[in-house]
Design a protein around this nucleic acid. Structure first.
Length: 271
DNA sequence: ATGCGGACCTGTTAGC
DNA sequence: TGCTAACAGGTCCGCA
């Protein structure tokens, strides 16, 4: 589910409710996520005050004086803000309760998500240390991508979905950005010129910004911290439109599999 | 170093 | 209608 816009929507949604609030209780109903929730997390978080709610790529960070809780929502996770007393539903694996009677509740049906704890600099955590630049910063430029693509024969789509190249670009937005930049998803990364990379980075930034504005994309069941869906799916030009006509040239959109991911594209517009 | 395929787990939907 | 198989937004890991 969550790509960068969904995670940012979640971050912005939960921050005002928990910033500077003290953790009163941590309830773990299911510790077996992608990795087990560390047993020390409960006692480590208790009585700590949330100093910052940050995002790095698709990771959410709750910073305290004692350490940092790292969330990843995987494919099906969501975080919601509720009042103490609201009973948990299926797949509500973790509650973090605060002194202002707020619960931060993690729901994750597929359990591909994670909740970890680190007392070191969280950005140096093994999962975060080798992440590429944030797509919405100046570090992510056409020149940068072009440099990185030198000698890389991998198809452009998995290339831009690689977190060490750039974070936060998942299947939906990669598919959309390549359509907008008129690049065939299978094209080798090293066979795209600098100018086209400049266009591609521009498209990625524009699409991510628009999606954040719309509150993310809801395909199946994404909900923000208030339990509401996002509205970006109404803007999708190719994702999920296999066999339907291209909005630009009316050609029937094709679907191929790249890696294990579905890729929809227009064979006339994208070369 | 790069690039693949498999793995994690559950829910929904398409197809028989 | 009911069962089964395929597929789903992510990404780490091990192997070639």
């Amino acid at each position: 589910m969550p790509e960068l816009p969904e995670v940012e929507t979640t971050r912005a949604g939960i921050e005002p409710h928990i910033i500077q609030q003290k953790v009163t209780q941590v309830i773990v109903r299911q510790a077996n996520l992608r990795w087990p929730i560390p047993s020390e997390l409960k006692s480590a978080l208790k009585n700590q005050c949330i100093q910052a709610v940050l995002r790095r790529g698709k990771y959410l960070l709750l910073k305290t004086d004692a350490g940092t809780a790292l969330f990843h929502l995987g494919m099906s996770g969501s975080l919601r803000i509720l009042q103490v007393g609201v009973s948990p539903q299926k797949h509500d694996h973790v509650d973090i309760q605060f002194s202002n009677k707020v619960i931060l509740r993690l729901n994750d049906p597929r359990r591909f998500g994670a909740l970890l704890w680190t007392i070191e600099d969280p950005f140096q955590h093994p999962l975060l240390a080798s992440l590429g630049p944030e797509p919405l910063t100046e570090d992510f430029s056409g020149d940068y991508l072009w440099q990185k693509a030198k000698g890389r024969k991998v198809a452009i789509k998995p290339f831009i979905m690689n977190n060490e190249i750039v974070v936060g670009v998942g299947n939906i937005y990669a598919t959309e950005a390549l359509f907008q930049a008129q690049i065939h998803p299978k094209r080798s990364a090293n066979q795209i010129d600098k100018e086209r990379y400049q266009l591609l980075t521009k498209c990625i930034k524009t699409i991510l910004r628009k999606a954040i504005k719309k509150g993310g994309t809801t395909l199946k069941d994404f909900v923000n911290s208030k339990g509401n869906p996002g509205y970006f799916q109404q803007q999708l030009k190719v994702y999920g439109r296999s066999d339907l006509p291209c909005f630009v040239c009316q050609t029937k959109l094709k679907e191929i599999r790249l890696g294990q991911r579905s890729s929809v594209f227009c064979s006339k517009c994208q070369k």
